[in-house]
Design a protein around this nucleic acid. Structure first.
Length: 476
RNA sequence: GGCCCCAUCGUCUAGCGGUUAGGACAUCGGCCUCUCACGCCGGUAACGCGGGUUCGAUUCCCGCUGGGGUCACCA
């Protein structure tokens, strides 16, 4: 049977970094085996679901490059892909279950059930409350009621997990769980099973926080006469303090990292290495991941999210041309340049400047800052740097100007050789003359190498900037 | 608390009976240097505890301890 996996987010917020990881593992598996990656929106909770979240999640997935083969906005033969549009199907399946006795209508209210639970807890503080109904038969289907699944009293339910192996839970622990709410909407476990089957999903890969749902789902597959899919649960990504990852203890939105100037490749790389490994290798291109990913290399233990490591992994992606081409770099940094008013930068100069900042820009936000003086004419003069242009430094700039005019070709090695020769013969220290030159050229106290900067700027702009530096130095 | 799961440096991990227990991030030194970076070299740092099994356990089994998840008309 052809591999079909899915990512099924509920649109009640931004795409969580943990959710992105789940999506990634599913996507990788589909891409590796030529399977189908389905996106399904689990919007059965009317209260929490909202269209802004749907938008945000789609945007984040697209930004990460996790494209779906079937789902909202791309279609497919198994739609609709919003659960809110599939209610007729859930109702129909629920009726079938009631008809064959696997489920029953229950008109016990939430409050009554809470009371039952409380009473039980009062008497058995150490026991587990298990609801086994119906305590009261709901004879009138027109009255508000939920539909509950009749869990077998005996035996155990087991399944084989692709990462954890065999897992089994005694049925005596399981309450008669709700399939359909009184408002007619299905509950997660039920909708997921109905849809995963209807959509032909062959492997359900999700976070480990879902292992407790799996027995209930397996029970449902059995009751419906469906063949259960394979299951794979991912170890959890916890916050640095060991608690469940949340907005309270970390930046958890994929959005957050995009805004701070991380590249999608870097984000994916960090996420996949969290729980999966390939020997000692740390950095992977997307293509490598598709080729190398496998479930038998997925570990079982939860881990703690590490911002520092994340930052470093993503820096590697920005640093290496084989992972981020100059063209990709330029287009990724464009929005950040635009944010500082550089909406239509000189493309050729930008392309030339990028190699000089790769080792310096840890994020695209930093990249835009480092690129700024290359692309702005004249460059912004940093107030802290200006004092370095004293009258005494003007002769240095004059000499460099002369060298710039004479040197052919206008290339870094030749420029550097001539300038250094002059510096040495003058008995000055390179470090004393370099800073004034840097300030004249860039307006800053720190920048890429002087001669690389000159070459990127070209002879004309270099001379113009040196002239400006001389004017500032001499106060004219 | 019931049920389920997990356990190697601070963190992510390699290891699948015999290794000086490896890598990466972080951290601490040093080198390189026109600034800032990058890079390079080196240091500190881990098998939770107790029983087995075995000639030999980080590795296999059991218990303990510790950690996590989950117990809704949320997903």
């Amino acid at each position: 049977m052809a591999l079909r996996v899915r990512f099924a987010p509920s649109p009640s917020g931004y795409l969580h970094i943990g959710g992105a990881r789940t999506a990634l593992f599913n996507w990788l598996w589909a891409r590796k085996l030529g399977g189908t990656f389905v996106l399904r929106v689990e919007d059965t909770d009317q209260e929490r679901s909202n269209p802004e979240s749907v938008r945000a999640i789609f945007d984040a997935l697209r930004w990460l490059g996790l494209d779906w083969d079937e789902g909202p906005e791309v279609g497919g033969a198994f739609g609709p892909y919003f659960q809110s549009e599939r209610r007729a199907l859930y109702r129909e399946v629920a009726e079938r279950l009631i008809a064959n006795g696997a489920a029953y209508r229950c008109d016990l209210t939430k409050e009554e059930l809470d009371q039952l639970r409380a009473d039980y807890k009062a008497k058995n503080p150490k026991g587990e409350f298990v609801y086994r109904g119906p305590v009261r038969e709901c004879t009138d289907p027109t009255k508000p009621h939920v539909v509950r699944f009749r869990v077998p009293r005996e035996g155990a339910t087991h399944f084989v997990d692709k990462v954890f192996g065999a897992i089994s839970t005694p049925n005596s622990e399981q309450s008669d769980f709700v399939l359909m709410r009184s408002d007619g909407f299905p509950l997660y476990n039920f909708a997921a099973v109905v849809d995963d089957h209807a959509m032909g999903i062959t492997l359900v890969a999700r976070g480990r926080d879902h292992v407790g749902n799996t027995p209930q789902q397996v029970l449902l597959y059995k009751a419906l006469g469906f063949e259960p899919p394979e299951f794979a649960h991912l170890p959890l990504m916890l916050a640095a303090n060991g608690e469940k990852l949340s907005k309270r203890n970390a930046s958890v939105g994929v959005q957050d990292y995009r805004d701070r100037g991380y590249s999608p490749g870097g984000v994916l790389n960090y996420l996949v290495r969290f729980g999966w490994s390939h020997g000692d290798q740390e950095i992977f291109s997307r293509d490598e991941l598709v080729k190398l990913f496998d479930w038998d290399r997925v570990g079982k233990s939860d881990g703690k999210f590490d911002e520092k490591k994340f930052a470093d992994v993503q820096f590697e992606h920005l640093k290496r041309p084989e992972l981020t081409s100059s063209e990709d770099y330029a287009s990724m940094v464009a929005p950040f340049l635009a944010a500082r008013g550089l909406t239509a930068p000189d493309g050729a100069r930008l392309a030339a400047a990028i190699p000089t900042i790769r080792d310096r820009a840890h994020t695209l936000v930093e990249a835009a800052d480092l690129l700024d003086f290359f692309l702005r004419e004249p460059p912004v003069m940093d107030e802290a740097a200006r004092p370095l242009l004293t009258p005494a430094t003007a002769p240095y700039l004059e000499t460099l100007k002369m060298i710039c005019v004479e040197t052919e070709p206008f290339a870094a090695p030749a420029l550097e050789a001539r300038f250094k020769a002059w510096v040495e013969s003058s008995g000055i220290k390179m470090k004393d003359v370099a800073q004034p030159v840097r300030v004249a050229l860039t307006g800053r106290k720190a920048s890429p190498g002087l001669f690389d900067v000159m070459v990127v700027l070209g002879r004309k702009a270099t001379l113009d900037r040196l002239d400006r530096g001389i004017r500032i130095a001499t106060g004219s």
